[in-house]
Amino acid sequence: MTNPHFHLPRTLEEVDAAWLTAALGQRFPGVEVRTVTFGTAVRATGTKLRMLLEYNDAGHRHRLPATMWFKGGYEAHSDHVRTSHARESLFYAEIEPLGLVNAPKCYFASVDDDSGFGVQLIEDLLVRNASFGDARKPVSVAAATEALNQLARLHAHRWNAPDLHRLGEVGGSLATDGIVLRIMRDGAWEKSMTAPVAAALPQAFHTYAAAEAGMERLWALDRASQHLCMVHGDAHPGNLFFEHDGTPGFLDWQRFMQSDWAHDVSYFLIGSMDAEECAAHERDLVAHYLKALSAQGVAAPSWDEAWLSYRRHAMYGLVWNVVPPTMQPAEVCEMEALRFNAAVKRLDTHDALFGAA
Rank of each mutant, 00 (worst) to 15 (best):
N3M: 03
H7N: 04
H7A: 05
L8R: 11
P9Q: 10
E14R: 14
D16W: 14
D16F: 12
D16P: 07
A17R: 07
A18N: 10
L20Y: 15
L20K: 14
L20F: 15
T21G: 06
L24C: 12
F28W: 12
P29K: 08
P29L: 07
V31W: 03
F38N: 12
T40A: 09
T40P: 04
V42D: 06
V42S: 04
A44F: 11
L53S: 04
N56M: 07
D57E: 14
D57A: 08
A58S: 00
G73C: 03
Y74G: 00
A76N: 10
H77Q: 10
H77S: 10
E94F: 00
L100V: 02
V101E: 01
K105N: 11
Y107H: 01
G116E: 04
F117C: 07
F117S: 08
I122C: 08
E123M: 09
N129S: 13
D134M: 02
R136W: 12
P138Y: 05
V141P: 09
E146H: 13
E146I: 13
E146T: 15
H157P: 10
A161Y: 12
A161D: 15
H165A: 14
V170D: 08
G172H: 15
D177E: 15
G178H: 10
I179R: 14
L181H: 13
I183R: 11
I183E: 13
R185N: 08
D186R: 13
T194S: 12
V197Y: 11
V197K: 02
V197S: 02
A198P: 11
A198I: 14
A199Y: 09
A200G: 08
L201F: 06
Y208I: 09
E216K: 12
E216M: 10
A220R: 13
D222Y: 03
R223F: 00
M230R: 04
V231A: 00
D234S: 07
D234K: 05
D234E: 15
D245R: 00
G246Y: 05
T247V: 11
T247D: 09
L251M: 01
L251S: 00
Q258H: 00
S259K: 00
A262H: 09
A262N: 11
F268C: 00
I270F: 06
S272H: 07
S272M: 06
L285M: 02
L285E: 04
A287P: 10
H288K: 03
H288E: 07
K291R: 06
V298A: 01
A299T: 14
A300C: 02
P301L: 01
S302K: 02
D304A: 12
R311S: 09
R312N: 05
H313W: 02
Y316H: 09
G317K: 02
L318V: 12
L318S: 07
V322L: 05
Q328H: 12
V332T: 13
V332R: 04
M335K: 07
R339K: 00
A343Y: 07
A343T: 13
V344P: 02
R346E: 06
D348K: 01
D348E: 05
A352K: 01
L353W: 06
F354L: 03
A356C: 05
A357T: 15
A357Y: 10
